[in-house]
Amino acid sequence: MIGDFPQLLINGLLAGTQLAVPAIGFTTVFAVLRFPNFAVASHATIGAYAGYLANTALGLPAGAALLVAFLVAGAFGVASDEIVLRRLRTAGPLTVAIASVALTIVLENAVRFAFGNDPRGYDLAVLRDWRVDLGWLGRVRIGPQQVINAGAAAIAMAVLFGFLGFTRTGKMMRAVADNPILAALKGINAETVARLANFIGMGLAGYGGMLIAMDTAVDPLTGFRVMLSIFAAAVVGGLGSIPGAVLGAFVIGVGEELSVLVFDPTYRTAVGFFAILIVLTLRPRGLLGERAV
């Protein structure tokens, strides 16, 4: 059993990098708008389909298709916020959160209406795994596609950190996330920042959705399947904290895989719930969160 550990750890780390991108998207929206936007699930799906169209219908390579996934999901994010969620913001975060659940169901079914239920695949060769000998630790296999995905996830994260750390707009976003009232006094337009947060957050969800779909298949439930894990990653890391979302994604990714050592794989989903439970009990603000939610 313990001989499986290195392989499970690698599986978990690779799963974690994929989970991190939509989790960052989720937490970015939370940081600025202070509500959990569950529509991240359908936006991940929309991203996966946008990338699918770009890849198969337009013949774009995977990298360009990922960019399309980001832009389309981001645009959908801004539009759905303008049309649906923004009007409800005055009614409080719980109302908007519930509306976002409804929104995700509507969008998921719109995708289903347009594309049908059948799983689809990208126009990418399925690559055989690399086999690596770790000496006394045994042999492990690593999927090239997953490594590529991990790289793509790392690039997205690096760009985002660069944007938030070094650009004026990025600093504006952080200011609003830190203290909306103070930011308003400084003349930062909260609505512009909200739109930007939605664009980036949902765009990242779409980017992450396509990464997940590249590893598996595109279907209308692509985003919904990972919703709980995304939410768990963001909560564990501390809602609103971007480094927290990354850490949370690794905790959930590795946790779900390592749980196989102890439990039947059927119970893997429970790991996410269990992690939320422990973190909210012992450290309500999450691992890297600044304040309790």
């Binding site: 499970l8 599986n11 590893d215 399947r225 794989p265 059927t266």
Partner: peptide, 17 residues
């Protein structure tokens, strides 16, 4: 046999088993 949760996106560990 391994009984897995079909709502997961990856079954690598199950397949390893």
């Amino acid at each position: 046999d391994v009984i897995y949760d079909p709502a997961k996106t990856s079954f690598r560990s199950e397949i390893d088993q």
